[in-house]
């Protein structure tokens, strides 16, 4: 009975999403017909067809793979560095005061400015990775720091009293306390990294990448390809987000991350 209610609810939600997608595709088609110039707006059907054509080419998969690698490398580096730095800036006030302005500058500076500056500093091949890293770092750093500050002192005292030791305290108190903050940071920053990484590829004309293809399409006024590659970016963004949700669920089994409603 309960399962059937949940199944029906899921079905209704899926139908609602499909209807919304159909409506927006309809709006797109109407705009296409109203404008009537393929150089400005192309039809959804043509875009879909072009994606299928692209997908048969080896370059498409090479470009997609490279872009994913750029973003994921930057993302992973941002998570690792943020996770390493956060405990120090929480523990040592001086380090916090030292790095806080830097983080605020990174947060406030337009991505395009950073990309152009970084293009001057480092080889263009590394720019997308670095930009993705820059997008992720302040979010992960800030969130983990917040998570550490919010650890229940009573639980730490309990762990101390019952002689958990450093490793067990980290594993059983610190990590589960911080995990929801880390997960929130990862889900938020992955989207940021993806968008900024592709923008960096466009501006740095990165070879064999989605951004590079978008740049070429723009140069040669191939609006259809700009639309097709942009659609690919959106699809991959959704895919990455789903992947992140799966990882969160897997982590949740161990650390009860997903379980705000379960224990929070």
């Amino acid at each position: 009975m309960m399962h059937s209610i949940i199944r029906n609810k899921n079905l209704i939600a899926a139908v609602r999403k499909i209807i919304a997608a159909i409506i927006w595709l309809g709006v797109w088609q109407v705009i296409y017909l109203a404008v009537g110039q393929e150089i400005l707006v192309v039809s959804p059907a043509r875009v879909f067809q072009r994606i299928l054509e692209l997908a048969t080419q080896t370059e498409f998969w090479l470009d997609t793979f490279n872009s994913m690698i750029h973003v994921l490398e930057g993302f992973a580096a941002g998570v690792v560095v943020g996770a390493i730095l956060a405990p120090f800036t929480v523990k040592y006030r001086f380090l916090n005061d030292l790095f806080r302005p830097l983080l605020n500058i990174v947060k406030a500076t337009p991505v395009a400015s950073f990309i152009i500056l970084v293009l001057v500093w480092i080889p263009s091949a590394y720019v997308p990775v670095f930009i993705a890293f820059l997008m992720v770092l302040p979010v992960v750093w800030g969130n983990i720091g917040e998570g550490i500050r919010k650890i229940d002192r009573n639980l730490l005292e309990m762990a101390d009293c019952y002689r958990f030791g450093k490793w067990k305290t980290f594993q059983r108190v610190t990590l589960p306390s911080v995990m929801p903050y880390l997960v929130a940071a990862c889900t938020t920053s992955l989207g940021l990294a993806w968008k900024a990484g592709i923008a960096a590829e466009v501006l740095s004309h990165a070879k064999y990448s989605i951004g590079g293809e978008i740049y070429d399409a723009k140069i040669y006024l191939e609006t259809l390809d700009v639309f097709a590659w942009t659609a690919v970016v959106i699809l991959l963004s959704v895919l990455l987000e789903k992947l992140m949700v799966c990882l969160v669920r897997a982590a949740g089994k161990k650390y009860n991350v997903e379980a705000e409603e379960k224990w929070g």
Binding site: N154, E157, M158, Y162, A259, W263
Partner: peptide, 15 residues
């Protein structure tokens, strides 16, 4: 070995 029953339960909420 010292066991401590605190004023609060101090149970790990995720365990």
């Amino acid at each position: 070995k010292i066991a401590y029953l605190f004023q609060e339960d101090r149970l790990l909420p995720w365990a």
